[in-house]
Design a protein around this nucleic acid. Structure first.
Lengths: 164, 164
DNA sequence: GAACGGATCGGGGGGATATTTC
DNA sequence: ACGAAATATCCCCCCGATCCGT
């Protein structure tokens, strides 16, 4: 991170273009300057086609999920499977966040920056990281939000969360 | 002068756009953002012909509104969209107020000063703030008043308020 | 920042409802 | 004094992250 000086008016202009709380000056400027043009146009787009959910069914049915001792292992396994099943949908859905923490990111640092002791972990077979310092209820919650945004059915979501 | 933090890449991008030695970061950003032109165009007040209402229709139809969990999120999204659709009309319409509270302002302080615990929030992509400590009925009310003053049709106003 | 999982509890936001004002 | 409208208190629930147990 570098520090630069900007005049009052420019500062207010930048601040007025905040999209959501906690958005950094860098993020805002990048958007305004269209620095990541191609990425931006890909995001935000059409509804994710519901995945086949084969991988999810597989870990549910052949007990791979149940075999995990701790909630966090089940949590991480599910996330990894969700990513593999539909990377594009996962990418779109993964911008869910809490009141101040960001839940997913492609970098450990940004997760650390958005909260204290968030204990980020890398999601296996994916470029993503998740926050991990949460109780089990919230882990269920995060999975439910993610799956909903990815287009999975309510029933399957319930089933998966049940088993965390 | 205020200082902001920017990431490495952005910093290099800004530096690479120096026109002459000694040019300040502020100057470069102002040029890149075309800030002076933009401010001028806002000040020019280009008569508020009823906007096309494209943005409003968009968030209504493609479910972005419905996707918001809480009433306040829908409220804030609508206001942001209304501003973007017609900044000049918004500016003129936004002086609506209650018995003692001011509803909109370009500063948090003035909203705080005009009432107790008004819980002001910044409107995304705009220089405005709104009061937030109201029940849902009043939120509808505020949106209705604002849209009416901006010249939207009764039908569309009803539709939008319904969905808050 | 290094053990780690995650329950528990403090803090804060949303907004219905009680209260106040006209 | 009564009703309607506006205010803002206050309760509930959600989120964060400390800290306890393993």
């Amino acid at each position: 991170m570098k520090t630069i000086e900007v005049d009052e008016e420019l500062y207010r202009y930048i601040a007025s273009n905040t999209r959501h709380i906690g958005e950094s000056a860098s993020d805002i400027l990048r958007r305004l300057l269209k620095l990541d043009e191609q990425l931006a146009s890909v995001r935000r787009q059409p509804a994710p086609p519901v995945a086949t959910a084969q991988g999810i069914h597989k870990i549910l049915e052949q007990g791979e999920l149940a075999r995990q001792e701790a909630a966090i292992d089940r949590f991480m396994l599910i996330l990894s499977e969700l990513y593999k099943e539909n990377p594009a949908a996962f990418a779109q859905a993964s911008d869910i966040k809490g009141r101040k923490r960001i839940y997913f990111s492609d970098s450990e640092e940004s997760l650390l920056a958005a909260g204290n002791t968030t204990k980020p972990k890398a999601i296996a077979d994916s470029p993503y990281w998740v926050i991990t310092n949460t109780n089990t209820g919230r882990k269920r919650n995060i999975v439910a939000q993610l799956m909903a945004a990815m287009g999975y059915s309510h029933g399957l979501i319930e089933q998966v969360c049940q088993s965390i």
